[in-house]
């Protein structure tokens, strides 16, 4: 149950408490409604675009891919996410990012990552501009959120033996470890034609693998979206 009025606390396992990486930063994250609902709408829109793009064989032409920067403030007991910014993805257009994938990502994680639709990399100048803009509101960049679809249901038939979830992929873990942002949210969308169900979890790098953070989502989000708790 919630420690905060009007808020559902979704997860509690595996507290990330490695002081060496994150000092005294809390291992609890709370989304404010506007930030959460703006991302949920974008993730649901992307998911629906994927469903609508399927051909008669079930092959989707659109790969759902939502991502955003998370801005907020660290408190004594939790990190509050009160702003998000959508920035361009330069995964397939920035030559240095493409080179990084060729040099470091493909050898570690496989040929599939040559596909520029795999993964995202935020435009770095846009990130700086967002940081400067949000600093005027007293907010700082705390990390990012990106969506995972239920690819085993809506992906191309030849990829349906693989699954995504609200857990990080190995590639997510690698990138979270490299960048060390304290909040990395994965927003899993499933449900297919019956309607999008949202399952959300927050992570940060740990000494060996990513560690799950306590995540609190606003209860009012249930009025607008089908929110499933990541864990009971």
């Amino acid at each position: 149950m919630s420690e905060t009025t009007g808020t559902e606390r979704a997860t509690t396992d595996g507290r990330a408490d490695d002081a060496g990486l994150f000092g005294d930063l809390p291992a609890s994250v709370r989304f404010e409604f506007d930030a959460a609902s703006r991302f949920a709408r974008d993730a649901a829109r992307q998911y629906q675009m994927c469903l609508d793009s399927r051909d008669s064989d079930g092959l989707p032409a659109h790969r759902p891919n939502a991502w955003a920067l998370l801005f907020g403030q660290p408190g004594h007991t939790e990190l509050t996410i009160s702003g998000i910014e959508f920035v361009p993805n330069v995964r397939g257009s920035d030559k240095t990012v493409i080179a990084e994938f060729e040099a470091a990502i493909v050898p570690r994680f496989g040929e599939a990552y040559r596909n520029p639709e795999r993964g995202f990399w935020c435009d770095e100048r846009a990130v700086l501009a967002a940081i400067m803009r949000q600093a005027e509101n007293g907010l700082e960049l705390l990390g990012s959120v990106h969506s995972h679809p239920d690819w085993h249901e809506v992906g191309p038939p030849h990829e349906r033996h693989l699954r995504l979830s609200e857990h990080p992929t190995r590639m997510d873990e690698y990138l979270f470890q490299q960048s060390r942002w304290p909040v990395n949210v994965i927003w899993y969308v499933s449900g297919g034609d019956a309607g999008a169900i949202h399952r959300v979890a927050a992570w940060r790098a740990g000494p060996r693998q990513c560690e799950r953070l306590d995540l609190a989502m606003p209860a009012a989000l249930h009025d607008e979206f089908d929110m499933a708790s990541a864990r009971s």
Binding site: F109, Y113, F120, L162, P168, T169, D172, L175, S179
Partner: peptide, 17 residues
């Protein structure tokens, strides 16, 4: 000083939970 913001979404073999 701004670390990169990036992630990936290729499906892995499922995490047991």
């Amino acid at each position: 000083i701004v670390p990169a913001v990036a992630g990936g979404s290729r499906p892995d073999p499922v995490w047991e939970s």
